[in-house]
Write a protein that binds this DNA or RNA. Structure first.
Lengths: 129, 129
DNA sequence: TGAATCTGTCAGTAGACGCTAACGGAAGCA
DNA sequence: TGCTTCCGTTAGCGTCTACTGACAGATTCA
């Protein structure tokens, strides 16, 4: 067991990791993505959101709770109604995570392809370069 | 039931949705993200990856299968070993999804804030005037 | 005050998911 | 050929999760 980077105990990264984890788990559900899409362009009350789906209002309410807990939803009260809209800030951590992953894997892929080409082409030049 | 945008039956969007769904479900697991991070910077065999975690090799193998099915992993055979590395192309759909969501919600948030400010401004002006 | 509306919360259930142990297949070596 | 290594697959189990139905709190209006 070496746990090089598998289970880091960093302090600053832990919060980001936790936020990313919650956001990803929230987005992993198709219904929740549909809800997020609905409230991405306009503010809507819970009942209006529930009407868009065939599942019960209870299920939608729970989905709203998950999205809210993940920081992906903004809630505003208006009388008996509760208006929801997407919260773009909740996607920041996820964006940076994907960017980092993208850059790293893209760089690795490029390097491996070049190495492969170098080996098949001329390994002497590869070792010399 | 109106299903305006909750359950679209589009043709071109369905594939993208499916790919995004699989990628998100794959990334929603912390262990799979750790695996992806490991092979983002270097190509590694399955056994080497399994050593980094306390769970059994079986579990890691299943995680590798999920990541591979989601198009996030590239597999290459070398004798008895199977080498894995992250596949950046698998993140494209997810990136565009997040970009779209980000742009839409950010625009909405800005518009709502401006409207709110306008209302409160208008309100004070109307009540004062 | 009482009725109606809008919404969240609390048990309970069916299905999905991650994990382990046991097994089977493919490749390398004496 | 027989042994070993490396790896994926299957069956089974415990846990998590999305869902439904029933109930409770908050607000508005007559």
């Amino acid at each position: 067991m070496t746990d090089t980077g598998a289970d880091p105990d960093g302090d600053t990264d832990t919060d980001t990791e936790h936020a990313t984890d919650e956001a990803l788990k929230a987005l992993a559900e198709p219904r929740r993505r549909a809800i997020l899409r609905l409230v991405a362009h306009e503010e809507l009350p819970a009942g209006r959101i529930a009407e868009e789906f065939e599942v019960s209002r209870t299920a939608v309410s729970q989905h709203l709770g998950v999205l809210k807990a993940a920081g992906l939803l903004h809630e505003r009260r208006d009388g008996t109604r509760r208006l929801y809209r997407a919260r773009p800030e909740g996607l920041v951590g996820l964006q940076s995570f994907l960017d980092q992953m993208w850059a790293g894997s893209l760089d690795t892929a490029r390097r491996l392809v070049e190495a492969e080409r170098g080996i098949s082409d001329d390994d002497q030049a590869a070792t010399a370069g």
